[in-house]
Simulated scan of single mutants.
Amino acid sequence: MNTRQEVLDFVHNGHQHYLPHLSIDCVIFGYHAHQLKILLIRHHGHEKWSLPGGYIARNETLTQSAHRILAEKTQLSNLFLQQFYVFGDSATRMNRIETHDTHNTTYAKVGVALGENHWLSERTLSIGYYALVDYLNVVVTPDLLVDAYCWQEVTDVPALDFDHNEIVQKALMTLRAQLYQQPIGYNLLAEKFTLPEIHALYEAILGRQFDRRNFRKKLLTLGLIRQLEERRKIGPHRSPYLYEFDPENYQKALEEGAVLAQ
């Protein structure tokens, strides 16, 4: 929502177009300089950061809504997107007064004060999705109600609004658990990469170091990557082979579920 009129229409008529009690929160993972990061935003009048998200349109499926919201926030499409949890048990989501006050702080920018029974003040369940994006390709779309955005390393996430710290931790746990079950990395690395580069990515996701000896064999066995004849010249006596993801096997793994034992 980039204009005041769009925001006002959303506030007054949004319940006609969106499901009032159900939203999507997106944990958008990006990888840069050997660090795994997430995209955070800060709404107008707020001191704390939060996750980007949005409401589910009445004529959309959950997946369609998640892809739309992600495209609106990053200008990217056809990304790895995974639903991982439903959030509704936290005290924050149960506290309607806190939710009401928080929304009033945000919408004060357009001169709107929400009534206690306004649809935006109702208790809302959140469906969590995580996405994997190319950090360099993300273009964050300006939003009238968002004052700032940043990329924050997952090991240094500050206290967030609502229950978003819980959502981030659950997304990270899910990503790590699925690292050897899903073709993670397709959207996080360049088109061609070396084994040390994909090894560094996996270490950044797991938050620990691990043995390289069987790493190449594991990935090749899964069939998600293939070795190229091309090499990258790094320096004297250092010309490692380049690798690329196999799109056909990658898509097959997405559809059928791939398994790679550690």
Rank of each mutant, 00 (worst) to 15 (best):
D161W: 09
L19I: 15
H15M: 14
L175F: 13
V7T: 04
E122C: 01
V110Q: 09
P158Y: 01
L132W: 06
L179P: 08
I41V: 15
R231P: 00
I56H: 00
Q178E: 08
V7G: 01
L242V: 05
L195V: 08
P196R: 04
T194P: 12
E122W: 03
T92R: 08
G207I: 00
R96S: 05
S90Y: 08
D25E: 10
L51N: 08
Y55D: 07
L175I: 00
L51P: 08
S65L: 12
Q5M: 10
A71M: 09
L40W: 01
L70D: 01
E256P: 04
L254I: 14
V133M: 06
V7Q: 04
H46T: 10
T194R: 14
D101S: 05
E166R: 12
V154H: 05
H67I: 02
A190P: 04
G30R: 06
P247W: 00
E6F: 10
R4D: 06
K48L: 06
T92F: 05
T221R: 15
T63E: 15
A171N: 13
A66W: 02
E244N: 04
R232M: 01
L206T: 00
E166W: 07
C26I: 05
Q262W: 12
Y202N: 05
E230P: 10
E248G: 03
L81D: 05
G115A: 10
Y202C: 03
Q16K: 14
F87Y: 12
F162R: 07
N249G: 09
Q35R: 15
A108S: 13
I127V: 04
S126L: 07
Y31I: 00
Q169Y: 13
T141K: 12
Y149S: 10
V139G: 08
H103K: 05
I69L: 15
L19S: 13
G115M: 03
A91H: 02
I127D: 03
S126K: 12
I41C: 12
I24Q: 11
I167G: 07
A171D: 03
H43N: 13
N249H: 12
F193I: 11
R93G: 02
Q64K: 11
R208C: 02
Q209A: 08
L242Y: 02
D161I: 11
